[in-house]
Design a binder for these strands. Structure first.
Lengths: 197, 197
DNA sequence: GTCTATAGAGGGATAGAC
DNA sequence: GTCTATCCCTCTATAGAC
């Protein structure tokens, strides 16, 4: 379990982080879930800053790997964007919020090294979204309002806040915002989870 | 200083809350800023839950008082909405995020009584925004996309996430989102803080 | 209404055995 | 690589003097 434990620590940390926030999770909680001692977590990540940086790097590499998969499959802009929506909706289903939202809210209590990684992650996501919107606009399948950059920002922020508001107002808030983004782009309304086979 | 201290505690708590989040501020910090002891804060608000509930009730009454002022002055929908934008922009200038964003992110660590107040606050804001959008739509001064309810939700979420992203990406993120909301409603672009006299 | 003093819990982190 | 044990700090909260 050399780096098996390391990976599992990151998985659990990611879950706790998106549920409880940066200040809201501890080494103890990670250790309990893995049935090890908190000192063992400190072995892999000496300080919480180390853990935070590793966590954010993991988000980035996961996202960039996911983008690369879409690219290799020559996914259309619609498929790419629906894939992104599906990622966010999964967060919703799991009761999580967007990591960038967490770090935005708790920024002042988060180590600078971790904030720097968040900045990089936000850049990755925005650049990718911008490119997808540009492509869709050129192909005439999206109605992009304003510049692709600003539309990408609007899209990201809408879903980020949607995940947060879902916790206060209920899940409808998220779905309303999601559908609104689709309509704004001129995409067809999606059927909601119909039992199929 | 009977309830003078109480009020000042709430002011300081509000500031800390929107800067550092729910888990990120303490009785100690409040006491230090007021140059009193933390036990004195406990006298006015025995538990952090009490403080949180009072804080959220304060947001609600402030907001509803502000709405009432606009109503009495028979403010137009444009003036009302620009007033709302100004409130959010002030948060931006002060380096704060939206209280509903904070409670959304940290929801799992926030006492239920406080979350209930957040729910009520969100309802107040959304109802007011919805009414303003309806009026503006009827009068032909706004282009409301979809229903006024969903547009109100979009507006609120855009600014909420904008305040958070400003901390990671810089203030431009907020202003871009703000202008985008104006454009979507068909409002004129606002000049940015020009020295005038 | 504010103070000192303190209890009690939990958090981050380290030393050293195994 | 994981453990026990421990340190030190901060946090919420309370008791009781003034």
């Amino acid at each position: 379990m050399a780096r098996g434990t390391r990976q599992r620590i990151l998985e659990v940390a990611e879950d706790l982080f998106q549920h409880k926030g940066w200040a809201g999770f501890s080494y103890q909680q990670i250790a309990e879930r893995l049935d090890i001692r908190s000192a063992a977590v400190h072995y892999h990540f000496p300080s919480k800053t180390d853990l935070g940086v590793a966590l954010l790097k993991r988000y980035r590499s996961s996202f960039n790997w996911w983008c690369e998969q879409l690219r290799q499959r020559k996914a259309t802009p619609e498929v790419s964007l629906e894939g992104f929506f599906a990622l966010e909706r999964r967060y919703m289903d799991e009761g999580k919020v967007c990591p960038l939202g967490v770090l935005g809210v708790e920024a002042e209590g988060v180590p600078e090294e971790v904030r720097a990684e968040a900045h990089a992650l936000a850049g990755d996501v925005l650049r990718w979204l911008t490119k997808v919107l540009e492509q869709g606009n050129r192909q005439g399948v999206f109605h992009v309002a304003g510049t692709p950059e600003s539309h990408a920002l609007a899209l990201m922020s809408s879903l980020q806040a949607g995940l947060q508001l879902a916790r206060t107002l209920g899940t409808d808030a998220f779905y309303t915002l999601l559908e609104q983004q689709r309509e704004q782009l001129g995409l067809a309304r999606r059927r909601r989870a119909v039992a199929g086979g």
